[in-house]
Design a protein around this nucleic acid. Structure first.
Length: 179
DNA sequence: ACAAGGATCCTCT
DNA sequence: GAGGATCCTTGTT
């Protein structure tokens, strides 16, 4: 599911973003927030697919995940980067007036651009929620590499090639780790 | 009720 | 390349 989300659109008000980089946190993954079972925070990851899982990281960054897999299975895909499609000025305002890839290459940056709050966790992505996930042409040229920022998780999870990005895009973080 | 730690970002060197 | 910001979630008492 993770590479298939590349190229899809995230729409929030007048802002539209094209997803350029994602990470998968599959069932049973040692780096997943579901690794210790179901809790109040990660409950949306165990819920039906097509919903948002939003959490606060390092006390200040809001991260957007797309919940995947069947209800009762804890899994999600983290949106790590995107490129602007519409609403560039609104994005810049929320991102401190920055320009270029620095606007959206990182999961906390995407959360800021979409003005996400943890109250949005569990909200649907197919209409009626804070953000809509809209279909768009599939991306065929995809780069793959290990995930970022999961040093705590152990070697197998650190090595797993579960990060996916649009090949050739400038709107991707940590590009040197991908092939 | 308490302590510990984190799927990051920004600034400065 | 290094370090600080910042606060919620979680497990433990």
């Amino acid at each position: 599911m993770a590479p298939r989300l590349l190229g899809k659109l995230l729409v929030q008000g007048a802002i539209a973003l094209r997803i350029t980089e994602v990470e998968a946190y599959p069932p049973g993954d040692a780096a997943s927030h579901c690794r210790a079972g179901r809790t109040a925070r990660n409950a949306p990851m165990w819920g039906p697919p097509g919903h948002a899982y939003v959490y606060l990281c390092y006390g200040l960054h809001r991260m957007l995940n797309v919940v995947t897999n069947a209800e009762g299975v804890g899994a999600a895909v983290l949106v790590r980067a995107a490129e602007p499609v519409a609403g560039l000025e609104a994005i810049r305002a929320r991102r401190g007036g920055k320009d270029g890839p620095a606007l959206l290459t990182g999961p906390g940056k995407v959360g800021a651009a979409l003005a996400l709050g943890i109250g949005h966790s569990g909200s649907p992505l197919f209409g009626g929620g804070a953000v809509d996930l809209c279909d768009a042409p599939e991306v065929h040229d995809v780069l793959v590499g290990p995930r970022i920022g999961i040093e705590f998780a152990g070697p197998a999870a650190r090595r797993a090639p579960l990060r996916f990005a649009v090949a050739g895009s400038e709107w991707v973080s940590h590009r040197q780790g991908l092939r």
